[in-house]
Nucleic acid binder design. Structure first.
Length: 601
RNA sequence: GGGGGCGUAGCUCAGUUGGUUAGAGUGUCGGCCUGUCACGCCGAAGGUCGCGGGUUCGAGCCCCGUCGCUCCCGCCA
């Protein structure tokens, strides 16, 4: 008989009754009935009940066992009597009568119980991650993550993609986030950067004549965390294709994403491909964000013109960009519903407020109620209702600002909040969309200059000769340029960003020049790739969906740490391994590094 | 860098207007129990009320500071 097990803890069924078996696992739960002791043994595969009676030679040893001790149990599989079968458990028809028991490892009192689903503080969970990972929910999520990744890999390979690895120790890349740096021992004062993404490598892979590359790629960015953004490191399904248009990239990605969500949907619905395509400008107007949650039926409308009418006397909105957010059926809501939203806009969003009108039916005519309704004559009221698609029984909130981008983003946040408060967001659905036609550049108000708004390697949607002729006198024209740049969004979460790349070295030098980089500087920073483009570069493009976010959505979790095996906390510390940590003087000396501690306040 | 929330037993949480010895559930340990599977019953241990200072006759509660965690803004395709 094998030293540790003939079966796993999830394996034995009625058919095994009579066999003498051996299983090993953790003591999930101990139940002591005086004479009779039950031990539930748990491993990766399941739980099996073991039982021992006082006349067994193994009784004393089995009786000592406590939660999370690791033991090996040997004995016959016996059928449970009809009234003691546990239908909740796959192995619930049988139990093992303990004849021999070997204690492999004992466990101290647990800082975090494995059994049960009580909530525990996150720092405890992170410090004792190995215990948390034994618990059912995390164990399931991490296993799911593995299954999702192998499904993605299979789907990519089936579509003719080839997986390649790219360097981890490399040079600073153009993403715009802060780099993680690694000091060079052999080259004093010089540093490697960890890749923020394999961006330049995947483009070079295309130049090198390989087609349809992909990789489950680790990416490193030294930026602050969010619930849906891990500090430091994360994984992308990085992919790139040659001789493709934007539509070709979409057609390659859609079946992979749709397929993998469908495979793990477990009853949830996945909106079919092709995914809707929404221009950036349209998304900002209708949803107030570039990552709209399409499960929310609310659509924002621009009503600046209505408030500009001469018969509308509401001064606070005059001359401003005004966006209307419908709240379907909100007329029945108590006053506190409206006050709470107004308070939220003032406190959380730093806005002057969130005006509103409640639409009611008065003898067949539309009537407005609420603090600002008296400023709006009935003709204008009808116009508001028409433009924003509301009817009697609904309410309409207003976001107003002299700057249209601020009016849009308050409206977007209000749309999300109203949708959630009114229960309008359909749970159990995955709704994807592409956001396309991102602006190539944006105006940096603080530094009074033109910046890249997204990936600087994207191809501008602009005539080549005219682009090369642009200079700073064309500011408005430049800010109006769109790029072949696109995002995939699912349920309000940005899954990926991609682009058709700029493979023309002259256009690229010009693109950087417009953003304030001298030619020499661009050559110095991206010379490797620019140079490659001078030796025959295919038109190419790709994208890179975030693996962690995909798994988070499929697992139904709201935090990346719930789908990451060994995550860091929000302060980018690994509480289990104790990273980051100081290093020895010797190590620093070898690296030609001296630490200068920040001054204490 | 900034803002919000939280911090009371190992854990989840209650703690009234500032008033006697800070409670419950759960877990741990001990005792009892031969069919439980969130076993049951009895008992015990377990507290720097995050930390420091202040107000007060008296502070878990009020004030100031500070630390930790978390969510968000900035930042980040």
């Amino acid at each position: 008989m094998h030293a540790y097990r003939t079966h796993t803890c999830g394996e034995l069924r009625q058919e095994a009754v009579g066999q003498r078996v051996r299983i090993s696992g953790w003591v999930n739960r101990r139940r002591d009935h005086g004479g009779l002791v039950f031990l539930d043994l748990r491993d990766h595969y399941g739980v099996t009940q073991c039982v021992v009676e006082p006349d067994s030679p193994a009784f004393a040893e089995a009786d000592r066992c406590r939660s999370e001790w690791v033991v090996t149990v040997t004995g016959p599989v016996v059928a449970r009597s009809e009234d003691t079968v546990n239908k909740e458990l796959p192995t619930g028809a049988i139990e093992i009568r303990i004849e021999e028991i070997a204690i492999q490892s004992v466990a101290a009192e647990l800082p975090l119980p494995v059994f049960g689903d009580l909530e525990y503080p996150e720092d405890t969970r992170l410090k004792y991650r190995f215990l948390d990972l034994r618990r059912e929910r995390l164990h399931r999520n991490i296993t799911l993550r593995s299954h999702v990744i192998s499904s993605i890999r299979r789907r990519m390979i089936d579509q003719g993609f080839t997986e390649f690895q790219t360097p981890i120790l490399t040079a600073s890349s153009p993403e715009g986030a802060r780099d993680f740096l690694v000091p060079s021992r052999l080259h004093p004062g010089e540093f490697y950067a960890l890749p923020q993404a394999p961006q330049q490598f995947k483009q070079l892979i295309m130049v090198a004549g390989f087609d349809r590359y992909f990789q489950i790629a680790p990416c490193f960015r030294d930026e602050d965390a969010r619930a849906d953004r891990s500090p430091g490191e994360f994984y992308q399904l990085d992919l790139e294709m040659s001789f493709v248009t934007q539509d070709d990239v979409f057609a390659a990605v859609e079946p992979v994403l749709h397929g993998v969500f469908e495979e793990f949907a477990r009853g949830r619905t996945v909106a079919p491909a092709p995914f809707p395509r929404i221009a950036y400008d349209e998304a900002m107007l209708k949803y107030g964000v570039d990552k709209p949650d399409l499960r929310n039926p609310i659509v924002i409308a621009d009503v600046s013109d209505t408030f500009a009418r001469e018969d509308v006397a509401f001064k606070a909105f005059k001359g401003k960009c005004v966006r209307a957010i419908p709240a379907p059926g909100a007329a029945v809501q108590p006053r506190s519903f409206f006050d709470k939203l107004n308070d939220w806009a003032r406190s959380d969003m730093g806005a002057p407020g969130l005006g509103y009108i409640v639409f009611e039916d008065e003898a067949g005519k539309l009537a407005g109620k609420g603090p600002i309704a008296k400023f709006i004559p009935s003709e204008a009221l009808v116009e508001l209702a028409q433009v924003s698609g509301v009817k009697a029984g609904d309410a309409l909130f207003f976001s107003a600002d002299a700057r249209s981008d601020r009016a849009a983003s308050l409206a977007g946040a209000a749309r999300t909040r109203i949708g959630r408060e009114l229960g309008l967001i359909a749970e159990g659905e995955f709704k994807f969309c592409w956001i396309v036609d991102f602006p190539m550049y944006e105006w940096n108000e603080e530094e009074k200059r033109i910046d890249f708004s997204h990936n600087p390697f994207s191809m501008p949607q602009f005539d080549r000769e005219k682009f090369l002729a642009l200079d700073h006198s064309h500011k408005e024209e430049i800010l109006g340029i769109k790029a072949y740049q696109y995002d995939i969004v699912c349920n309000g979460i940005e899954l990926s960003s991609g682009a058709i790349r700029n493979h023309d070295p002259d256009v690229m030098l010009k693109a950087f020049e417009i953003a304030g980089y001298a030619r020499e500087e661009t050559e110095a920073r991206f010379g490797g790739m620019l140079n490659a483009f001078r030796y025959g570069a295919p038109p190419h493009g790709g994208t890179a969906p975030g693996i962690d976010r995909i798994v988070m959505l499929i697992a139904g979790e709201e935090n990346l740490r719930e789908v990451t095996m060994f995550p860091m906390n929000q302060q980018a510390q690994d509480l289990m391994m104790g990273a980051p940590s100081g290093v020895s003087q010797k190590q620093l000396k070898e690296l030609h590094i001296r630490v200068v501690q920040p001054e204490k306040k």
